[in-house]
Design a binder for these strands. Structure first.
Length: 502
DNA sequence: ATGTGC
């Protein structure tokens, strides 16, 4: 048997790209890393594997706790982690969702070809930078009065479209039609709402960006046709989350768990994995508040989409919908938990179980935590929007600003291998602090423009350094693993034309 | 990720 060991954590190779940390001690279930040998070596360099192992202690965790090929260490649970936990007898963990609730990415297609944009990159990047608020702190596309906040938290994209910031077809092209039906705005604190108020329609900082890209490769012609993608076509990618509102909400509930459920917390190997027991008031309140933050993040991406459409309309002197065909391809969430039904091993009492304790397999409602992971449901699944049901849901995976991105479709192995999930990006190789020691923002910006004709504009040079292409893993390798495992299949590849960020 | 710390 092929094995690897990192800091005392041993992994057994189950098959190509599948590595298992066997169950031992207080682990409820084994854990699996979905990675090639080279990606596993990178994942093994930080605390990801220990964090993944810690997460197997969470009550109700179904087999196996997972790390996607782009995984790296995060708060408590790896970014790139998937944990499916019994919604009746288990728990829900804010740290396994992430601070930036519904950080996610959407792709907008256009009728433009690369030739239409070439030579006008500076004009376009300046206009977008002007139109889309970015960077830390406040300032959004709209003011965010009480009605706006309430509409966004309660009704998501539906509210934004009603207010004139989108078109009817945008709704069906978001996970959950852009509205979590179980959102409960009353469980979001006043402080969180105050932080979100003047951030409605803003990119934020860090790895968030808006990028104009050209399609360089099409791998599955029939799927690309369904998605409206063709070689040399221009697309717009928008990556951002729930800003201060989601961050505050995560923090609020972590503090409440510490106060109200210290007994469970004391049993966990890491306090950052703090979780509310399923069925508790706090679990229901967090789930409802998280749903409202999810809606807010969708509105955020919708307002930025509106600004991008308006800007393209002005720059190319055309109607963004009628002439430029700027329809939403799809919007995917990276940091969420959601009640989904999956088949798992169960014990005599019907609880998720493994090994000798598993006497049967049955469908169970699970809190599927995807933290830095993307839902990747295959063709035929009822939760895939009708327009894409015959080919599988679009999965949009951004790479670094020097390497381009991929569009995949949910693969037919995803339900049995990864609770219907795949990777969400290239995955960091080093911390932000280390990145700033290795790179200088201005130099990175010059190299991208001179070497690859990629035009980057940011509020802060430090952000460009933190996001330099060299701080990321090889996106091609991440996608190869997803494609070869059959959890997310390659459809098209894109390359950056211009990029704005915080 | 984040009014870039509790």
């Amino acid at each position: 048997m092929t094995t690897r060991e990192f800091d005392g954590i041993r992994l057994e190779k189950v098959r190509e790209h599948v590595w298992e940390i066997p169950r031992e001690g207080d682990m409820n279930v084994p854990a699996r890393v979905l990675a090639s040998e080279s990606l596993l070596e990178e994942i093994g360099e930080d605390d990801s594997l220990q964090q993944l192992k810690n997460a197997t202690h969470l009550p109700g965790m179904a087999e196996p706790a997972l790390c996607m090929p782009d995984g790296h260490q995060g708060y408590g649970f790896p970014v790139g982690g998937v944990g499916a936990i019994d919604a009746r007898t288990g728990c829900i963990s804010p740290g396994a969702v992430g601070y930036d609730i519904n950080c996610g990415v959407r792709m907008v297609r256009t009728n433009l070809a690369y030739d239409d944009v070439r030579g006008r990159e500076s004009e376009l990047v300046d206009a977008l930078f002007e139109a889309v608020p970015s960077g830390l702190g406040g300032g959004g596309v709209i003011g965010g009065d009480a009605d706006a906040i309430e509409g966004a938290l309660e009704r998501g994209v539906e509210w934004a479209v009603e207010e004139g910031y989108g078109i009817e077809s945008d709704l069906a092209r978001c996970e959950d039609e852009g509205r979590r039906p179980d959102a409960r705005p009353e469980y979001v604190s006043q402080k969180a709402m105050d932080r979100g108020r003047n951030q409605m329609g803003s990119l934020g900082s860090g790895n968030h960006f808006l990028e104009v890209q050209r399609v360089t490769d099409v791998f599955r012609e029939e799927v690309a046709d369904e998605y409206g993608l063709r070689e040399d076509g221009i697309v717009v990618l928008i990556h951002c989350g729930s800003r201060g509102l989601g961050h505050q909400t995560c923090n609020d509930y972590l503090r409440r768990i510490e106060k109200e459920h210290g007994d469970l917390l004391a049993e966990l190997p890491d306090k950052e994995l703090a979780a509310a027991p399923a069925g508790s008031e706090l679990a229901d309140e967090y789930y409802g508040a998280m749903g409202a933050c999810i809606n807010f993040a969708w509105v955020n991406r919708q307002l930025i989409t509106h600004q991008a459409r308006e800007t393209f309309g002005e720059v190319f002197d055309a109607d963004p919908i009628e002439d430029l065909g700027m329809e939403l391809l799809y919007d995917v969430a990276h940091n969420i938990a959601k009640k989904e039904t999956h088949e798992v091993g169960v014990d005599a009492d019907g609880r998720p179980a493994v090994g000798d304790e598993a006497v049967d397999r049955a469908e169970r409602e699970l809190y599927v935590h995807r933290k830095g992971a993307t839902r990747a449901f295959p063709a035929g699944n009822a939760d895939v929007p009708e327009v894409y049901r015959s080919v599988g849901q679009p999965v949009i995976i951004p790479g670094s600003m020097g390497a381009g991105s991929y569009v995949l479709r949910g693969g037919d192995q995803s339900m049995s291998v990864s609770f219907g999930s795949t990777a969400h990006g290239a995955g960091r190789l080093m911390s932000r602090t280390q990145a700033k020691q290795e790179f200088w923002g201005g130099d990175v910006q010059d190299d991208l423009e001179d070497g690859q004709q990629i035009y980057v504009k940011a509020q802060s040079g430090a952000t460009i350094a933190e996001e330099a292409p060299g701080v990321y893993k090889d996106i091609d390798e991440v996608i190869r693993v997803s494609d070869e495992l059959g959890i997310g299949d390659k459809v098209a590849r894109t390359f950056p034309v211009c990029n704005i960020k915080g």
